[in-house]
């Protein structure tokens, strides 16, 4: 069966939300660890380089020479704004939930500037060269966020940080990353997945090498050209190889153990990966003939998960020679 629709036209491309979220467990090493420990104790420390510059926050290695840095030096909790910008619409996770300034602040006794937020009433209250001082958090954990923010210095300087009970030096930190995406699978795969919703497996033939790919790709991997004719392939095929998964992993949604295999669909020239079920795991074998078990029409979505799994057809196994080129 040849499709009529121009397969190259990106009709209605699909899209779906995707969240990349993970909380990293970082070890911080001796230099950063000492700085963060100091913050928890309400103290700001820099390091002195061989040339005598005091770096705050402390770099682990001299930015000019790459040399190891020297002694720690306590610096003031107030300093001078070297540059600033105004955030009129703060985002979640930033130090303040009302409009504020980001600033480069050179603390008293430091030769370099640190980035942090300044809680100022309006941009009119900000200027380069103004003095600001630290507003400490009461509950501190060993993080740059132990400095809640800076505030314009009214002349009294920074207030003392409320004391924290003694604790072990900081060796690590938790670092959440949360990114939101809207992912489009592209025009070719969108068209294929629309077919899946209709219970059809629509491959595409490469005009150069004549091979049928299911699912089709954005271009033929060996020829680099867009695919041509749409070709419906069968939902029966042969298991060319397989794996039985017994290991749990983060983000896993499948019940263990499960078996998945490379299934060479009849009429296709490349196998797809899918679940193999309806047979005890220890009876799955290379050459097993299987058929797609579709979800009911109303439950199908634009994903190959609309095929619940492949289950044995009961036919005799395919001879090894018939699929040995496909593994």
């Amino acid at each position: 069966m040849e499709g009529k629709q121009d397969p190259a036209s990106p009709a209605e491309a699909l899209s779906a939300p995707y969240v990349l979220a993970y909380t990293y467990r970082r070890s911080v090493g001796p230099v950063i660890g000492r700085f963060l420990t100091g913050l928890r104790e309400g103290r700001i420390e820099g390091v002195r380089t061989a040339a005598g510059r005091v770096l705050v926050p402390p770099a682990e290695y001299d930015p000019e020479t790459g040399a190891a840095v020297g002694d720690f030096v306590e610096v003031g909790a107030a300093g001078v704004v070297q540059s600033w910008c105004w955030v009129s619409e703060p985002r979640a996770g930033q130090p303040l939930d009302r409009p504020f300034a980001w600033a480069l602040v050179k603390l008293d006794g430091a030769d370099t500037a640190m980035v942090h937020a300044v809680d100022a009433p309006s941009p009119a209250a900000m200027r380069t060269g103004m003095r600001v001082c630290v507003r400490w958090r009461a509950e501190r954990v060993g993080s740059v966020r132990d400095i809640a923010c800076f505030v314009p210095d009214e002349g009294s300087g920074a207030s003392e940080a409320p004391p924290m009970p003694p604790a072990e030096p900081v060796r690590g930190m938790l670092s959440p990353v949360h990114l939101e995406f809207t992912i489009s699978p592209g025009a070719t795969l969108s068209r294929f997945l629309e077919g899946v919703v209709e219970g059809k497996l629509l491959g595409r033939r490469c005009p150069a090498c004549a091979k049928v790919y299911v699912p089709p790709k954005g271009a033929c991997p060996t020829c680099g050209v867009p695919f041509g004719d749409e070709v419906a392939v069968s939902d029966t095929g042969t298991v060319t190889s397989f794996c039985i998964v017994n290991v749990p992993f983060e983000g896993q949604t499948m019940k263990l153990p499960y078996t998945y295999g490379s299934v060479l669909l009849d009429g296709a020239d490349i196998p797809i990966l899918h679940l193999i079920s309806g047979i005890p795991a220890d009876e799955v074998r290379m050459g097993l003939r299987v058929r797609a078990e579709w979800l009911p029409a109303g439950e199908r979505r634009p994903t190959l998960e609309s095929i619940r799994w492949f289950a044995p057809t009961g036919e005799p196994d395919a001879a090894y020679e018939t699929f040995s080129e496909h593994q």
Partner: peptide
Amino acid sequence: SESDAMWALSPKYPFVPPL
């Protein structure tokens, strides 16, 4: 050790079955 290798190599991605 900062994360989990299995997660970092195979995050659950739209339109791709988590096999």
